[in-house]
């Protein structure tokens, strides 16, 4: 646990030490607020609900989280520090979990920065706190999947932009699987499989305040799968 925290702390430190961190912390909440209050129909509906705020989250997470994770392995590979890490008395799983915990910390900070949006809505009317909390839990779990996939793809390339683009593309595709399942030419069994794997559909019920064990297991299982793959990539590099 000591090494996991050590690496998580280092990732957090790099984030808050660079201007990029502050840009993310300022731009992301501002963009979400603009989408929710201005681009959406919040004022027209005259209802104190954050439903439309969470509707944007799957796409927002698909774009934001890979930006947080893209440098985490790529930069280690490019600078050659990955070799140094592998010679230190640290287990591969500690390295992977340390980076992942670091990414989750950045995600938490970024989501915390959006708290002004539900606070504003709460100021304007009665908000169901439980629904908001469930929505944020869902967002965090969705973000964890995005972080684990972002880290995996970052570990496969020394180019940060390639890591970001590939992660974002895959995550957007994973959010569109349910839409693809509605095509008439898709057989029902395949359509069901596609819907099961759709990130957005699993998030949808949580964003409405329903926490289902199946959704929780889906997010946690997918996160674990990508983290294990990340560890395998590192192990394979030892045998390159």
């Amino acid at each position: 646990m000591y090494n996991i925290l050590l690496f998580a702390k280092r990732e957090l430190r790099v984030f808050v030490d660079t201007p990029v961190g502050y840009v993310v912390l300022a731009v992301f909440p501002a963009t979400m607020a603009a989408l929710f209050f201005l681009a959406g129909s919040f004022f027209a509906e005259s209802e104190a609900t954050l439903r439309n705020f969470f509707t944007w989250m799957p796409i927002a997470m698909a774009l934001l989280v890979p930006a947080l994770t893209m440098r985490m392995w790529s930069e280690e590979i490019r600078e050659g520090t990955e070799e140094l890490l592998l010679t230190w008395p640290i287990r591969l799983r500690e390295l992977v979990l340390g980076k992942f915990l670091g990414a989750l910390s950045l995600l938490f900070l970024t989501l915390l920065a959006t708290a002004m949006i539900p606070m504003t809505v709460a100021y304007l009317g009665d908000v169901d706190g439980g629904v908001v909390l469930a929505g944020y839990c869902g967002t965090f779990l969705l973000g964890a999947v995005c972080a684990s996939l972002g880290l995996l793809l970052s570990s496969l390339t020394r180019n940060q932009i390639v890591a970001w683009l590939s992660s974002a593309a895959i995550l957007i595709a994973l959010n569109l699987l349910g839409l693809a399942a509605t095509a008439r030419s898709i057989p029902p069994s395949l359509a069901h499989a596609l819907e099961t794997l759709d990130l957005g559909l699993h998030f949808y019920s949580m964003s409405r305040g329903v926490i289902d064990a199946a959704d929780l297991l889906f997010f946690l299982g997918l996160t674990l799968f990508f983290l294990v793959c990340n560890g395998l990539v590192l192990e394979r590099r030892l045998r390159r």
Binding site: Y2, N3, L6, R10, R13, V14, D17, T18, E79, G80, T81, E82, E83, L84, L85, T87, W88, P89, I90
Partner: peptide, 28 residues
């Protein structure tokens, strides 16, 4: 074992003090 790899990889954004403190902690 202490190891100085070829090309001496380091984290450019860290200070010398932070680098050494980090290496100390990472060595358990």
């Amino acid at each position: 074992v202490g190891y100085l790899p070829e090309n001496n990889p380091l984290w450019p954004e860290m200070t010398v003090e932070e680098t050494l403190a980090f290496a100390w902690s990472a060595q358990g």
